[in-house]
Computed example of a mutant assay.
Amino acid sequence: MSMSGCLNYSRAVVFRAIAIFILFSLFPIVLAAQEDEAESGDDIPVQLLTGTIGMLVHPDYPPDQARLVYQPLVDYLNDVAGLDIELVVERNYHRYWLESRRNNVPDLILEDAHITAWRMREFGYQPLITTLEPMTYSLLSNAALADDQLQDFVGRRISTLPSPSLGYLALARWFPNPLQQPQMLSTASSWLDAVEMVFSAEVDAAVAPANLAARYPNLYPVATSAAVPGLTLSASSAVPDDIRRRLIEALTVLHDNPDHHAALFELDIDRFVEADPADYAGLEEWLSTIFRM
């Protein structure tokens, strides 16, 4: 090798050594910077971490009507709690339950207590708020059948919303014998629609929640389910604690806010209270009436 070749080779070796030295000198600095960035991530405003938060509501109404009923509540939370919540509506109970079993759902869900309990067990959701009054469902008949007993409705037409609505499951519990069943007609588009089918003589009786049953003194309760927590908002583990607290604080004072009266009026409830997870223990067993859990 010539003298110049040796010199070039030596320079290359030196430059390579310097490059390696610089690389390994900078590595701890870069690593430390990444660790500092990760630690500082805890201080980033939660909304930047989450972006828009979806809130799914149970399909007790057709989609267009559901948006009218639940949007005032979403507007209130976005206004008062400073959040960016987007209403999510499924078109029917079949799709709602299918996506629920896949856990292909948003991080906030407003629904009946038995499905909240199931999500708590299966996917780690936690209840945040519920209604002040517990919920019951009643089997309502007209005056002509007011003195009849449950067994008298075997073979008769009863309107309800589809499974796994709590009303449908209550009806299934009242008639556990598969050979002695009423005709369960789950074609109603809402609980109000189910009750109106009694007056149009399309059915002999209807299942209805307590708040709706109270509006009809001319219908008579044949049976009433056990009381469970009412409409419940739950959050997945992805919702940070401070967002949960803001939701609880905002919703438990909603009844004192006259500017957002429509949020409670549309839901036909008086007020929300903070939920106690212990109240949901075992409620998922309601689903075992229909499904193998």
Rank of each mutant, 00 (worst) to 15 (best):
S138Y: 08
A113H: 14
E86Q: 15
S141H: 08
L140N: 05
H114K: 02
N92E: 10
M120S: 13
I129N: 03
V88W: 04
N92R: 12
F123W: 02
P106Y: 01
I115V: 14
T130V: 07
P134V: 13
T131I: 04
L108K: 04
I129R: 10
P127Y: 02
V88A: 10
R91I: 14
S100Y: 08
Y125G: 07
P127A: 04
T116E: 09
H94W: 11
N104V: 08
W97L: 08
Y137L: 06
E99L: 05
N104P: 01
L139N: 09
A117Q: 00
Y96A: 02
T116Y: 06
N103D: 11
V105L: 13
R95M: 11
E99I: 03
A146S: 14
E122L: 05
Y96R: 06
T130A: 00
L110R: 03
L128C: 05
R119H: 12
R101E: 10
I109G: 02
W97K: 00
L98C: 12
Y93R: 14
E133T: 15
R102V: 00
L145H: 07
N103C: 08
T116V: 12
L145T: 15
I109K: 02
Y93N: 13
L132C: 10
T116G: 04
N92W: 02
E122C: 13
Y125N: 04
R95I: 12
A143Q: 13
A146Q: 15
F123A: 06
P106K: 05
I85Q: 00
F123E: 04
I129A: 06
N103W: 06
I129F: 04
L140S: 14
P134R: 11
L140K: 01
H94D: 14
Q126F: 11
A113K: 08
Y93K: 00
M135N: 10
H114F: 06
D147Q: 10
L98M: 15
I115M: 08
R101T: 14
I129H: 05
L140F: 05
P106N: 02
Q126C: 09
E133R: 15
S100F: 10
L108Y: 07
N104A: 09
L128H: 00
E99V: 07
N142R: 14
P106Q: 09
T130Q: 10
S138F: 01
N142E: 12
P106M: 11
S141Y: 09
M135C: 07
V88M: 08
S141R: 14
L140I: 04
Y93G: 06
L87K: 07
L110W: 03
R101W: 02
L132T: 14
L108R: 03
P127I: 03
I115T: 13
